[in-house]
């Protein structure tokens, strides 16, 4: 019995590996890079010219101005207070297309600076999408669209990964 169970788990390990291996490589590699998503994005985006630093007292007025011009900005307004990434005093917001089904690549990004009179100057910016692309890649196994059906495929791959892990441990320690 012992030997046959072990053979069974060797077969499980082999076939889950054959089916899921390539997809897991994509998910692991792209997922590991995604840990550095923000740093990668900052590194790959050219700096906005003539960006004036915004003072804390100006922020409430500017946010009111954003909401007046773009009521849909809603909860996606950011003000950077730490200087960890050299973006201290940066006021920005994004517009999310509700029909995009969490497809972050279609979001529109804006930055806010102060003009000469101290009024809010809203400009659309185009941050590098490489890090978002890598993030999406690891959620849809490299398939071309960021849609739920493809995320489900990654879910099945993750299920096979669990099988491969447990069967591998069983084979390695010969627990059965």
């Amino acid at each position: 019995m012992r030997k046959t169970t072990l053979e069974t788990y060797k077969t499980v390990h082999t076939w889950t590996g054959i089916v899921a291996g390539l997809a897991l490589f994509i998910a692991f590699f792209a997922g590991a890079l995604t840990i550095f998503k923000d740093a990668l994005k900052h590194w790959a985006t050219p700096p906005v010219e003539q960006q004036t630093e915004i003072h804390f007292q100006q922020v409430p007025g500017f946010i009111a101005e954003i909401l007046k011009q773009y009521p849909k900005a809603g909860r996606d307004i950011y003000f950077e207070v730490s200087d960890l990434q050299n973006r201290k005093g940066e006021l920005s917001f994004q517009l999310v297309d509700p029909a995009s089904d969490h497809d972050v690549l279609s979001n529109k990004h804006y930055t806010v600076s102060a003009d000469d009179q101290g009024n809010a100057l809203i400009q659309q910016v185009y941050p590098s999408q490489i890090s978002e692309f890598i993030d999406v890649l690891h959620r849809v196994v490299g398939l071309p669209l960021d849609i739920d059906e493809f995320r489900w495929i990654m879910g099945v791959i993750a299920l096979l990964y669990a099988l491969a892990l447990v069967s591998g441990v069983i084979i390695f320690f010969r627990i059965c």
Binding site: L159, L165, V166, C176
Partner: peptide
Amino acid sequence: WLLVLAFVFMFR
């Protein structure tokens, strides 16, 4: 679910 699926092959 995954643990059951992983250990189900232990049944004779």
